[in-house]
Design a protein around this nucleic acid. Sequence first.
DNA 1: TAGATTGTTAATCGATTAACAATC
DNA 2: TAGATTGTTAATCGATTAACAATC
Lengths: 208, 208
Amino acid sequence: VVGLQHALIERLVHYYHVLVGFRANGDRSHFSTDEIGEAMNVDSSQVRKDMAKIDVAGRPRVGFEVDLVLSTIEKTLGFDCEYPAVIVGSGRLGGALASYRSFAAYGLRLVAAFDVDDRKIGKRIGKVTVQPLSDVGAVVQRDGVRLGVITVPAPSAQEVANLLTEAGVQALWNFAPARISVPEEVFVRDEHIAVGLGELAHHLKMRS
Amino acid sequence: VVGLQHALIERLVHYYHVLVGFRANGDRSHFSTDEIGEAMNVDSSQVRKDMAKIDVAGRPRVGFEVDLVLSTIEKTLGFDCEYPAVIVGSGRLGGALASYRSFAAYGLRLVAAFDVDDRKIGKRIGKVTVQPLSDVGAVVQRDGVRLGVITVPAPSAQEVANLLTEAGVQALWNFAPARISVPEEVFVRDEHIAVGLGELAHHLKMRS
DNA sequence: TAGATTGTTAATCGATTAACAATC
DNA sequence: TAGATTGTTAATCGATTAACAATC
């Protein structure tokens, strides 16, 4: 099974946010591809193609139904499911992610957090208690954990990735500024902050 | 002045990391476009084009010089400069960023951090002391701050963006899960974690 | 020299945009 | 009805890959 393309997923998340905003404002039950395209800086043809890809139809002169598109995106991206996840690395970043409210809204359920540092063990982050890293394998297997979030320092990232993949997680979310290699069947999403730094530095350089 | 394209910058940061690794290993003074392309999953023609774009030449049968390419990327992206920056929002995420060592390596110099919460004021994050948000405008102007990092909750993000842009920052790095609008001349880099969540959820959905 | 690797042009591929008939 | 908006096909654009002569 081959999934959707990266760029399409990114746009779907983007539509999702804008439409959640529309719904919050209340007044708007439908939208046209022109107006959402303008709000997102995307061509209206692109929007229509994307809607076709996820199999929602609009109505001429009326547009697309906000609620229908929202629930279709939820189904398409899997926000309506529940994926057990663990965080490895319970420092500030790990703590910030553990407390991120939207975690559950996107289908992830945090079941445990780990650290090697004895001083952190027993502390609470988000709704879970930090456990020693040595337990990670057992917990992953016991709870059928599918996602591992890596928020350890760069030098430990590969080792943690190994522990997680050996225990059977299907995907990794890597926040460590390091390249990790994993078995082919494991999906890795790198959240490399350095790309942002690069863009910002480049832009500021252009400015001066 | 129009800058480099997003995708090129991303690849440059990527090359940079791989080459820093090569240099750390010590043994390797030159590289071929084939080997770095393979390491990065990029076509070797692409690598050669990118090198041409940043004006470094290689030598047939020898390849490109690691040190030369590294220093050229530093110059091109502006890592060799110093851009004063502030962080607004001194919670866990702000603290994690403030302590991120590579900050300086990419040209950013953290000069101050802010928060609205009285309990956080006076605490240290990274090398700076947290100040009340009401001081942000004065500090930005006094120190010629060019970048504002936004790590506040979503509902406050726009307000913070307004304060920063009115005070004169040229770029924003937005970690809040919110869309912010700014004057045209201000550059915004959004670090929207939800895109990562979307990709991971979609992948896990495909798997089950 | 022979052969590996660059630099660059041409070919391919895919993604974006434009256009417009169909429709409500 | 008239006109706004979809759905889809065609046209454009840009990015990626292939190819190969030049070179050390």
